[in-house]
Design a protein around this nucleic acid. Structure first.
Length: 99
DNA sequence: CGAATGACCAAGC
DNA sequence: GGCTTGGCCATTC
């Protein structure tokens, strides 16, 4: 069991229709200051976790990946009932999940 | 095992 | 008020 596994576990527990932030995931995983690690971990496990439910502090999709994954994420979020603006931003105040 | 890396955050100019 | 800098710490090669 490692921080990585905890992060993955937590991300998988995010209820459908909700999103959370890197900082929140890091805190729930035990490292309130490990937001960066969460990003890196999700990067290495992009195929194993619903990373589309994790956004940065501003509610923006922070991936530096190609635009295609972003569109996929936007579609997935909307599919779950989450409003995503054309700027790939979600309303954390409304859809934010903090455990 | 050591050095580099990173999809963040908050404070400082 | 927007941009730049520094710190954080596990994972990876």
């Amino acid at each position: 069991m490692s921080f990585k596994d905890r992060v993955i576990s937590i991300v998988c527990k995010i209820p459908s229709g909700h999103v959370t932030t890197y900082g929140t995931v890091a805190t729930l995983a035990g490292l309130s200051r490990g937001a960066r690690l969460v990003g890196g971990i999700l990067h290495f496990n992009i195929d194993d976790v619903p990373w589309h439910r994790v956004v940065n502090r501003h509610g923006f999709i922070s991936t530096k990946c190609l635009e295609h994954p972003k569109l996929a994420q936007k579609a997935l979020l909307e599919q779950e009932g989450i409003e995503v603006t054309s700027d790939f931003m979600v309303n954390l105040r409304k859809y934010g999940w903090f455990g």
